[in-house]
Amino acid sequence: MNTYAKCLAVISTSLVAGLANANAQDTMYVAGFGGSVETAFVEKIIPPFEAATGIKVVYVAGNSTDTVAKLEAQKDRPELSVAIVDDGPMNTAIRSGLCAKLEDGSNSGAVYPNARVDGDLAIGLGYGATGLVYNTEVFERNGWPAPTSWKDLEDAKYAGKLIIPPISNGFGLLTAIMQARLNGGSESDIDPGFEAMKRIKPSVLAFEPNPGKIAELLQTGEAALGVWNNARTAILAAQGAPVKFVYPKEGAMVILSQVCVVNNAPQPKQAQAFIQHLLSPEIQAVFTEATGLGPVNPNTKLSPEVEAKVVFGEEKVSSLQSVDYSVINPVRAEWTDRWNREIER
């Protein structure tokens, strides 16, 4: 049985009963990421749901910030029923009252504990890991052992060879927080993180936000070591670049793609059912293959090749370090201004 047929079978038994009275003309709008994610939704994730329920689903592509802005603009009369965004922006959406409580379901009940959100106002959809990336050829040429720790960023031998995104970028933000934690601080006490970044700064080739430029610098070896995401590293490696991702011994930092039912959604029951569909093992596998984000449902089956590239299994999932965006988001603009004055001046 192919993936489409499996998905249809799962939906037919678990969702149709709850949507038996749905009008075949109903249309539900789902906001999420663009690119390969949009393609996967349009071609593989949405069709079996539509076939089983008679509901038309329209996918609205955009980045997380734009999606939350749409939710804010439509707060009084929402057009969207489901929103998929990263964890930081999702925290903003929740604090602004834009998400409704997720109802209990067999698939949502199966996810890893650290994929759940307090109050059940959202739930994880896929794990990304922020850690270290290095050019294997440069390391071999210099006789350097593979990096193992976030503290390796302070090693003077990498002078002029580090690539780190700025704090305005999610990867840079998590780097600053991890450096704070390593030096006695936290997101509630970021000063040690800034002091550590001042020590690291002289070795940095560029505080680069553009993923294409980061990929270029890593591929050419101009940058030997940096901070990046496991999924982006896997894509670059698949293109033949001599790069490898490292889960630091202190733990990689998680970026958790999340999904919520929009508060006062025009299609609330269908939205609840669609999220259960997204969290099913079959659709989790499709989502993982399209995004490189590890599945939150431990019952998901992946090929050995895909497993090796993503956050997969209890050991990797439990090792991920999370952050408190309810502390970060109110002061993030202040941190960015400080970064511009003290780190990138």
Rank of each mutant, 00 (worst) to 15 (best):
T3I: 15
A5P: 06
K6T: 13
T13A: 02
Q25T: 07
Q25G: 03
Y29V: 06
Y29F: 12
V37D: 10
K44D: 15
I45R: 12
I45P: 10
I46L: 04
I46P: 09
P47Q: 02
P48M: 03
P48I: 00
F49Y: 07
E50K: 13
A52F: 02
V57R: 15
N63Q: 14
K70I: 07
L71P: 14
Q74F: 01
D76P: 11
P78S: 02
P78D: 12
E79H: 10
E79I: 11
E79S: 13
I84G: 04
A93M: 09
L102S: 08
E103T: 08
G105S: 09
S106E: 15
P113R: 14
A115P: 01
G126S: 05
N135V: 02
F139Y: 07
D152V: 03
Y158F: 14
K161L: 13
L162H: 12
I164C: 07
I167K: 12
G170P: 11
T175F: 14
A176P: 09
R181K: 07
L182A: 13
D189N: 15
P192E: 04
P202E: 15
S203M: 06
E208W: 01
P209T: 13
N210S: 12
G221Q: 10
G221S: 11
T233A: 09
A234F: 01
L236G: 03
A237L: 05
A237G: 07
Q239G: 14
G240D: 02
P242L: 03
E250D: 10
G251F: 04
N263G: 06
P268Q: 10
K269R: 14
F274W: 00
I275V: 05
Q276S: 06
L278C: 11
L278K: 13
L278S: 08
V286Q: 02
T300A: 00
K309I: 05
V310A: 08
F312N: 09
K316C: 03
Y325M: 10
N329K: 07
P330Q: 02
V331E: 08
R332P: 05
R338W: 01
W339A: 11
